[in-house]
Design a protein around this nucleic acid. Sequence first.
DNA 1: CCGGTTCTCTGACTAGAGTCAGAGAATGGA
DNA 2: TCCATTCTCTGACTCTAGTCAGAGAACCGG
Lengths: 299, 299
Amino acid sequence: MDAVQIDQVRRFNRTVTERVGVLHDNYLGRDRPFGAARLLWEIGERGQDIRALRERLGLDSGYVSRLLRSLESDGLVTVEPQARDRRVRTVRLTDAGRAERAALDGRSDELAVSLLEPLNAAQRGRLVAAMAEVDRLLTAATVTLEVVDPGHTDAEHCLRSYFAELGERFDSGFDPALSLLPDAGELRPPRGLFLVARLHGEPVGCAGLKLPVGAPAEIKRMWVAPHARRLGLGRRFLADLEARAARHGRDVLRLDTNKALAAAIGLYHSCGFQEVAAFNDEPYAHHWFEKRITAPSPG
Amino acid sequence: MDAVQIDQVRRFNRTVTERVGVLHDNYLGRDRPFGAARLLWEIGERGQDIRALRERLGLDSGYVSRLLRSLESDGLVTVEPQARDRRVRTVRLTDAGRAERAALDGRSDELAVSLLEPLNAAQRGRLVAAMAEVDRLLTAATVTLEVVDPGHTDAEHCLRSYFAELGERFDSGFDPALSLLPDAGELRPPRGLFLVARLHGEPVGCAGLKLPVGAPAEIKRMWVAPHARRLGLGRRFLADLEARAARHGRDVLRLDTNKALAAAIGLYHSCGFQEVAAFNDEPYAHHWFEKRITAPSPG
DNA sequence: CCGGTTCTCTGACTAGAGTCAGAGAATGGA
DNA sequence: TCCATTCTCTGACTCTAGTCAGAGAACCGG
């Protein structure tokens, strides 16, 4: 990888951890140990089950219990057993807790202000834009792709969202029964595969690949959750599936799509797909694309 | 301040501290406590006096001593009294220490790579560019301006560097004796003032303001250290001095400059200065500038 | 050469952030 | 109904990262 880039990333890490880190500690950990403040924050306005808190923060159950005791004795939270399952306990903020949380919030704002303060308006604009870009791309880099069974909860969640969205966007609506849907077996080894993208553990996109014997590979059911768009995830799915298809010895990759999906059509063009004549009679398709692919170089 | 901007800064802080922070701990603190690793790093190839280490890292002397003992017992450093002053002790890396430091370096690289890895080439380019921008602007925001006496060490350091640079850049060289230099008293209250800019405690620029009675204020000896350029520091000096001149009741600010200082001339234009006829007979000046200024609004 | 200062070290302490091994209630399934 | 499991809590630890108060050696100015 490019040494100049690595160097810049390291310089960035140093500057940011110094500047943001130091202020972070100064502002947020002022009265209360950091762990307790974090917990207070995570409980949120609506309360949380202790197990959910533990999971989200990745903390030991004993540790969380102790932190909660200290918040409780300061009168910031109440802990009560859940009605349906009295083993599980729910934490809620008291009014004092809500006030404390708002104070934390205010300090977060102060921190942000103190970073912008010394700059003039033009510099502020540029800093904020650059931060947004870094934020977006680091988020993109934390998205993971994984091959799962199309029957997996996360896969089904994505597919439901996908069909719902098609129903909204197609002029004609979308009825799965009328479409040439591959049966699940076609997206399951050895006849194909199914990818799910996850961000912080939540499914945020999917894409299927059909690998019919002696025929071009075909992409089906590619979808990216609205809040995960603009992260280059579509492009990443295409690149990943293309590599997999090539590894399975296919030299052509194809797909069909609906005219309502303008962004997707743009993506296919920009990723090197050529529009071709219809290669199936999918009733919801208006465009058919194809791309010649080559085997990945070994290593 | 703009709430949208504050919000973006907060989102940035969250993403970066999570993503970079977690990896940072994973990679860098692997075998050795973080404090020891930091110390090992700061000792550097050429060794350091203990007091310098302490100062730079801002640590308690007892704590540093203990950390050094542990590094010493691991065979990574040697500590010896300085020849000239046997109270002061100098730490040097052993071969093993050098190797350990190189390993830390390698992990820093790995961290950087792991942030870039999941991205494609275009995204990497954009991420690195945005990181450079954030880095540059956060650095700019940590620069402080302070009024000091022109006889202060930091002021003198800046002035020496300034004269040296003029000597190199002017076609004719630069001889302070031939120039219309204000005597130090003119850049000292009540007749004027002198600003020094500092980054992490090091002086990185200066600017003087003459406030002659019943005459326009005048900027003299503005200089920014080469490694602190492109941080908007020149613009910041001008804005600061302009506000100070206005607070002292002046409504015109002026300055002269040499044709070799193209960047400065560009800056003056872009900050609203107009070129005017010579208002003095400074032998090294080719351009004279003036700007009408207004009293800052109260508050 | 004496007294104050500088520099480093040691010992004794603290707070934060966890980990680990049960104990004891509540629940769910056979 | 009973047994395994789930969930939370308690007590007993650990490791980092410090802080604070001297002690003792080395140095410096008068």
